[in-house]
């Protein structure tokens, strides 16, 4: 029982960086911009966040630094793809490669440094509940924050005028432009917000989840977040569930092994991706499904003059 509670707790924790980055990318993509640079952005943010935490000892300052670093790198990306209309795929990959190299370069002196121990945070009163306390209420505040964020993103996209405009820009920038909306600035805002969220995810990894910095420590989570947006058919609530599914399967595999239950680890490593394929097959069995949700102008440049 206690082990199960620990597994739930680990799942929530593991899903949090994926959900954060995934939500950021979802906002990007809803505005029609595909940012393949997420892995590099997360790495740069991770090193910025870790360095800040080391200097200030304050993890919220670290998250802010991560968000800033993420937004700054995405601003470069945004300027390139929105104003210069460079190819989004190539630019994103370039940003990703640049980010991993740059983070390694500036992070050389941070390798092996230790953060000051902070007591594990928890929710008062609720943490004493049997089982549930262990499973749900001994988490970092960011874990709860990301759940709120997913709700907020859903509300923003579907219940506010600004969200409608954002989606319009992703569906048909020409129409939005004709209506007088500043398509490029809206896209840039979405890219900045998305980069900031990826940045918070990176900082969460290096400051809370694995409190250390080593080169390449994001280890592919940026790519998983990208896959999650498709998995979730660009819906925030589904994205959150998907993040927990991905995190949960990874954690389940490690927990089972430590409990002496033998499952081939290769099989378990494969599972989240199999789940993605199954979901994609299910989605595409009804073409309407994906057409309804996928931003129609995803990845396409927009020329206001044309």
């Amino acid at each position: 029982m206690n082990q199960l509670a620990l597994l739930v707790a680990a799942t929530l924790s593991a899903g949090t960086p994926l959900a954060l980055a995934g939500l950021g990318l979802l906002l990007n993509e809803r505005a029609g911009v595909l940012n393949l640079g997420s892995e590099g952005i997360m790495l740069v943010a991770a090193v910025a966040g870790f360095g800040t935490a080391l200097l200030t000892g304050n993890e919220w300052a670290a998250f802010a630094a991560g968000a800033l670093a993420g937004a700054a790198l995405s601003a470069v990306f945004g300027w390139l793809v929105i104003w210069l209309n460079t190819n989004q795929y190539a630019t994103g990959l370039a940003i990703s490669l640049f980010g991993s190299g740059f983070s390694a370069f500036v992070g050389i002196d941070l390798v092996g440094k230790q953060l000051v121990e902070t007591p594990a945070p928890s929710v008062p009163l609720l943490r004493d509940l049997p089982f549930l306390g262990e499973a749900l209420f001994k988490q970092h505040p960011m874990v709860y924050l990301v759940m709120t964020l997913a709700g907020a993103a859903a509300w923003f996209l579907y219940r506010t005028r600004a969200g409608l405009v954002l989606r319009a820009v992703g569906e048909s920038p020409a129409s939005a432009h004709a209506l007088g909306y500043p398509v490029r600035r809206i896209r840039l805002a979405a890219v900045l917000a998305g980069g900031a969220l990826c940045g918070v995810a990176g900082a969460y990894l290096s400051v809370v989840y694995t409190p250390l910095w080593v080169e390449g420590m994001v280890a592919g989570r940026g790519w998983i977040a990208l896959a999650l947006t498709v998995f979730a058919t660009w819906r925030p609530a589904r994205l959150l569930l998907g993040a927990y599914l991905f995190g949960g399967v990874t954690m389940l595999q490690l927990f089972l092994q430590a409990q002496g239950v033998q499952v081939a680890p290769q099989f378990m490593t494969m599972l989240p991706y199999v789940a993605t394929v199954v979901v994609l097959v299910l989605i595409s069995s009804n073409p309407l499904w994906i057409r309804l949700n996928m931003p129609a102008s995803l990845g396409k440049p927009f020329f206001p003059g044309a």
């Binding site: 989840y209 280890a219 954690m251 490690l254 092994q257 430590a258 490593t269």
Partner: peptide
């Protein structure tokens, strides 16, 4: 007790594997 992470280098996953081993009594 052995936990396989299926990677030579994945610090977050290595950390989780270490945690689950410690939870398992190692």
């Amino acid at each position: 007790k052995v936990v396989w992470v299926g990677a030579w280098f994945d610090p977050p996953k290595e950390t989780e594997a270490a945690k689950s081993l410690i939870n398992g009594g190692a």
